[in-house]
């Protein structure tokens, strides 16, 4: 018999933010790497007084994972990976706008 588990979906941006430790784990990095991303402006400022209490929104999680993946796959430095992510986001934004006026 197939059991159906009823799950409570929590929105990361409202009810269940991602902690700095979780974000580091998602990206297979150390928390210092996450702190560097915030300090260098790659991620928007995190909420929380001290780095160990920082929490992150969906946008930051997606961005950080993307940066980590590009750094790993292309062996580029943080600045280059962040630039690639910015350009990709810009392309997505422009495509979305293009879709709206077509």
């Amino acid at each position: 018999m197939n059991t159906v588990t009823v799950c409570t979906a929590l929105l990361v941006d409202q009810d269940a933010p991602v902690t700095i430790q979780e974000l580091a784990r998602f990206c297979e990095q150390q928390t210092d790497w996450v702190i560097m991303l915030v300090k260098q402006g790659v991620l928007p400022p995190a909420q929380g007084p001290r780095p160990e209490q920082w929490v992150f929104t969906s946008v930051s999680v997606t961005r950080a994972r993307h940066v980590a993946r590009l750094q790993r796959d292309f062996e580029v430095n943080l600045d280059a990976a962040a630039l690639m992510v910015d350009l990709m986001e810009e392309i997505r934004h422009l495509r979305n706008r293009l879709g709206a006026i077509r």
């Binding site: 588990t5 799950c7 929590l10 929105l11 990361v12 269940a16």
Partner: peptide, 16 residues
């Protein structure tokens, strides 16, 4: 899994 997707969820948002 039976998951209730909350009202007003936006593109790119994450659900835990």
């Amino acid at each position: 899994l039976s998951v209730r997707i909350p009202t007003g969820v936006r593109e790119g948002q994450m659900i835990r």
